[in-house]
Amino acid sequence: MAAIFVSAATAAARRRIGVGGVVMCGGRCGSPASSASVVSASTPARYVFEVILDSWMFFMGLVMVLSNFDILVVLGRIGKELDLRPYVLLLEGEAQLPERIMRNICNELDKLIERGEMKQCKNLRRLLNKSVSFNGVKEFDRYEVPSLYLQEPKNCWSLPLVSLTSIAVALPNIPAHEANKLVSGVGEGLSLVKLVDGTLDRTGDMEHVKNAADAVWVGVELYRKWQDKDLQNTNMGDETYKETLQKLSNLGEKTVKDFTTRIEDIMMENPLNWPSKVIAANSMYRITQTILLDNKDNIHRTDKVLFEKLCVMISDILAACLTNLAHVIIFKCHNDATKDRQENVRRAAVLLGESREILELLQQHRLPSLDHEKAADIEEWRASMVHLQ
């Protein structure tokens, strides 16, 4: 399969620049190579490696028309089947680069991928195994929940994840080791989720929302606290999970109302400008109210069953978010500064190795029909899923 894609990419490259077998490297994808970026067989090996990495970036840009997972099949076999020589610009009359140099370049890329494979997230993989669909993306926040303000802050991927994890940890009668496993899995996932949130947020509008998620997660991961409230002491004695949820909801509601009733700065009328603490509180209010609505008539659901349902919901959101990883890997290779771009290619290779098993797992899911830009936005996911109902 990989060989087919490589051939298609090579043919596309040749058609794009209108020459027989020579592809320019250096500069932006599809732009002419500068004189400083010309690769010669006599060029020092270290410099050749730098420039060929740029060629690899160019190849990655060319295959963006392929599906994300097929791209990764190609890149995952970069040192085995992919011949980079057609992507090297040679001066007239120059010989091809020696096979030894090409092999060393491919071996270096393989080593970067293998380095990433050594860092694969086992706890995250176990958590993702709970997901069989993306329904959690739609279910974590119901539109029937009354708003506390005229507008609602938008969600990034990480905010509902940390809110749901906080709620799961706070549930009564859940063994500590089960809560700890969940926190470990979400923690490993968030390191990748933040790449998606950070890389694909082109405008920076979501900065306060991402900061809210980061602040909450520090408390949950290190101290099992949500905004200074000890999550493992939210329930006392025979308290039910509904009472625990209502307490967390009341805390969130009070924080939001205390802030919104005193708004004087016109900038604060936009929820994306709210303090991180208030954005996190609004998320907690809406999600706890959603769970209470879902369980309004369910008097027999146990704490353990609800905990498992929340784990599945968390897994669904993680899975949906991480379908963007292939695009992030490619995007990280597109940087205007040549020096940064080459370093980003190396990081992308490590990330490919780190996320390989996760991406293979996600191939079992059926993806919604969203372009790259919309697929990076959890609100677009929710809108598309509601539309399909």
Rank of each mutant, 00 (worst) to 15 (best):
S67D: 14
P153I: 02
A11P: 00
L90N: 09
L231A: 01
D303K: 02
R366Q: 13
I266T: 14
A95V: 07
T43M: 14
Q389I: 12
K277T: 14
H208L: 10
L231N: 01
A213I: 07
L370I: 01
L322H: 04
E152G: 02
M1P: 07
I71G: 11
L248I: 09
L245N: 05
E360T: 09
V209K: 00
V145T: 13
E253D: 05
T302H: 01
I263H: 02
V51L: 13
R262D: 09
V38S: 01
L159F: 04
D336I: 12
I113H: 00
D228C: 06
L62M: 12
S276R: 06
L351W: 04
D230L: 10
M24D: 12
D205N: 14
V132Q: 12
L222I: 08
Y241Q: 03
L66R: 05
N155G: 00
A383N: 06
M268T: 03
V132T: 14
E139Y: 08
V278S: 05
R366L: 08
C156W: 02
R356P: 00
L190F: 03
M64R: 15
S191R: 13
L75T: 08
E117F: 02
K296T: 06
H300N: 11
M1W: 05
M60A: 13
E144Y: 05
R286A: 12
N282G: 08
W157A: 07
L325R: 06
A8F: 07
C25R: 10
K138I: 07
R202V: 15
F59W: 14
C25W: 09
G18M: 04
P98A: 08
N180A: 13
G27Q: 08
D70V: 06
V216L: 08
R115Y: 03
L362C: 01
Q120H: 01
L75Q: 11
H327T: 12
E207N: 11
S249Q: 13
A11Y: 11
L159D: 04
V19E: 08
E50S: 04
H334R: 13
I378V: 11
G30E: 10
Q120N: 04
S315F: 01
K296I: 04
L293T: 12
L352R: 02
E380Y: 11
N123F: 03
I174D: 02
G353N: 09
A41S: 14
V256H: 05
F331N: 05
N155C: 09
C29G: 10
A376D: 01
L231F: 02
D297N: 14
A320T: 08
K225S: 14
A2F: 07
F59M: 15
D316T: 07
N235Q: 00
V183W: 00
L109M: 10
Y241C: 04
I71E: 06
I17K: 10
N324S: 14
E81V: 15
I287L: 07
E360A: 08
I4A: 06
A376C: 03
R366F: 01
V22D: 05
N270K: 12
E380N: 12
N273P: 02
I167T: 09
V345L: 12
R103C: 06
V169P: 01
C321M: 06
L128W: 02
L75W: 09
S166I: 07
G185Q: 01
R341N: 07
V312N: 01
D228P: 00
A11Q: 13
V186M: 09
